[in-house]
Nucleic acid binder design. Structure first.
Lengths: 209, 209, 209, 209
DNA sequence: TATGAATGAGGATTCATTCAT
DNA sequence: GATGAATGAATCCTCATTCAT
């Protein structure tokens, strides 16, 4: 904001190779995830992208619009990653395992529903629809993978939407840390394993209960 | 500003029976849950409590402090309710079922972690600790119930903290509605049943893995 | 805004006797008249009133609302002044003369229609109605005075609304100054006289047309 | 931003026949009249002219300069039209009638003084002079017509500047509409007739007063 | 206990303007 | 002749917070 820090020194190649609009979106996405909608300010988006606020507004007319774009991008990444991983020809359990591992390392792991909820009062009808749409698309893609396994008999027949949601819900648990920074189990790998095991057992049909 | 916003004449008995400080806390709790930390304003807390903003500040020095009190109260309620329900002498499954039912009807059902996260940057060290403490207390209480069942052999031995978290996490799923307002299953009862089934099967030990 | 100039020295009695809300309105009215809606800034309203911007917003929720209040106040003053002058028992011509004289000395003399037009895109439905209403009220009051004279036979029967508008329109001419600061006639009194003469002759019925 | 807002393919002949600089001026003039100086944005001038903002700045260095050009053009049009109409050899009253009719149909009919006033704080010394000059030129031309009639004895001897101003002032009244969209008289023609009659009677010398 | 009045600090948004290409 | 990208400087508005009474 003050004393333009922009032109000092040579910009890192990596940074400048990416178009400004994309860089803004990346920064914003990160900020929104870290801080939520309200806590993240357009000022900081600009600052961290090394542009002025006006530049941010040049590309995104409002904060709500920038947020919408961020969510859509996020959903796309999640969808593509998930589908990519789930479409390999390893055993289904292995694929799930890999997916959980990837997610547990990703920045991406917020309870998306929640910060969408926080932003909701600031979004207009159209933005809400766009976000809902992109969210459903992501869910549908993951759901389709599950559905395929059910058809193949690998997975018991089930309400796919339900188990998709459960899956994405337990996925979030990999991020848990208590006040001492400890997860549920000594190593992340163990946590992942236990989550998968829990999920896997959970979705089995009730045979003898 | 002008023209007293408070009702003229005699206040409703119900309203006045409750001390102002408590009424403020109740309003605030509801507002925070509905709108999150940032979206909820001290102005609206005051307005809805039928007092002035200055009165709110008379009882709670800062918004962060009010929030802290709200969370602590919330945790207490959740803890007491959970323990009460889990301590009856029905079968464990029935008790879980009842618990899920109660939660799915409660306003209380937000992903608490998330709005705590949203408030975090506004809280000071001490407030953070208080909140963490009350959260853990709640968890511990529920955990203790699970642990008891494990000891009795009703529940397989397990990482109690882990399954407590899973339980509270899937609990949230009862609130799910798609864009058409539909839950996962035709009736809420079915959804509850399915969630319990998932959880119940999930915590069984892996016999043949 | 910076380095509060407020508390230095003793506030002038005159200034402090008037409630802040009124002082803000006075400043704003003057500013809007001098500079128009867009050119007048809330910052300057605050500055000139010796309060902070937030104080201005404490009393008036938006700039549009402040503007609306200013117009309404202005109309009231104009109406009251006009009616007061027009209701004395001098000859009608003398009363008109006095009215024109008063107006030509008043700050009040802008083409009101025009700065209302400038503000219009910023006003909401309700504010527009309020303004229209207060404008009509003013016109109606002046109109009523003209109508009374017509009934008394002092003034020829005529479309009162029409002549009221003409009157208010030519009233504005008293303010004319060319690039050298000269009005139409050597002295303001002469200009006033000529305007009245024009108006007076204009409203006479066409005898020989 | 992205996705050319201009029409693809071959531009309409009509559009391209006119040089860009002129098209910009036309758009700007219309916009300034419709919305006033501040409300009209360079962005919209560009948008409506189907060029980019940078193109507008290529032809006009600042908004104030564009405004100045618009006013000068406007004055020229008004002057030429007025003179053309006033120079025919019909009776003077008929010519005035025609003039009023033309003006009442023109978009051009704003109280020019007022939006000049609105723009004033944004204009520099030179621009102010240019505008004043072109305004005076227009007035002088109309004044000259009036003066000629006075010499011919058609019009009573009078302060020509004064009656020119009065004339242009009452001209504006043709545009009046109340909140129901009604003018002063049932038809525009009647209104025009009444305005002329008023003006005509108004400027007669006081013979018997 | 409770409040009306006032404020400081920030945050979103707009817009005329510049400049390298 | 024309443009896309970027910016500086306002400007409106919000909100938690304070303080005298």
């Amino acid at each position: 904001m003050s004393g333009s820090p922009r032109h000092l020194g040579r910009p890192r190649l990596q940074e400048q190779a990416i178009p400004t609009k994309v860089r803004i979106l990346q920064t914003a996405t990160k900020l929104f995830i870290e801080q939520g909608y309200k806590n993240a300010s357009m000022d900081e988006v600009a600052l961290r992208t090394n542009v002025t606020k006006a530049t941010v507004y040049y590309y995104y007319k409002t904060k709500a619009e920038l947020f919408t774009a961020a969510i859509v991008g996020l959903m796309k990444i999640i969808r593509e990653n998930s589908v990519a991983i789930l479409s390999t020809d390893e055993t289904f359990e292995n694929r799930l395992h890999k997916l959980v591992t990837v997610f547990s390392h990703a920045t991406v792991n917020v309870d998306i529903n929640n910060f969408i909820k926080e932003a909701t009062p600031s979004l207009n009808e159209e933005q809400l629809l766009i976000i809902q749409h992109s969210e459903e698309e992501m869910h549908d893609a993951v759901e389709a993978c599950f559905a395929r396994e059910m058809e193949k008999g690998v997975l018991p027949l089930n309400n796919t939407k339900f188990i998709t949601h459960i899956f994405l819900s337990v996925l979030n648990m990999t991020k848990y840390r208590d006040s001492n920074g400890q997860g549920f189990f000594p190593t992340p790998e163990q946590t992942t394993t236990e989550i998968i095991r829990f999920f896997w057992k959970g979705i089995q049909p009730s045979t003898n209960d």
